[in-house]
C-alpha cells in the first residue's frame, strides 16, 4: 500500500479552514439564538463566509493532487 506525503500535508492544511468554518457557524448559531428573526439575513452571510473559508481547503486539495 503506497501513499503520498501530499495527503498528510493536505490534512494539516485543512485544520485552518476547519477551525474557520467552525467559528463562522458558531457565530451564526449564537446570532440566530439571540435574534431568531434575523435568520434569513444571517444565513446568506454565514454561507458566504463558509464558502470563502472553504476555498482555502479546496485550493489545498487541488494542490495535493496536482503537485
Amino acid at each position: 500500500m503506497d501513499g503520498n506525503l501530499n495527503m498528510i500535508g493536505y490534512g494539516l492544511a485543512a485544520i485552518g479552514p476547519g477551525v474557520g468554518i467552525g467559528l463562522i457557524f458558531a457565530a451564526y448559531i449564537s446570532g440566530v439564538a439571540r435574534q431568531p428573526e434575523a435568520q434569513g439575513r444571517l444565513q446568506s452571510i454565514a454561507i458566504l463566509g463558509f464558502a470563502l473559508a472553504e476555498a482555502l481547503a479546496i485550493i489545498g486539495i487541488a494542490l495535493a493532487f496536482v503537485l
Partner: peptide, 13 residues
C-alpha cells in the same frame, strides 16, 4: 477558479 473547484472538490472527495 474557486467556484469551479469548490463544486468539483466536494463531489470528488
Amino acid at each position: 477558479a474557486t467556484l469551479a473547484l469548490r463544486l468539483f472538490a466536494n463531489m470528488f472527495a
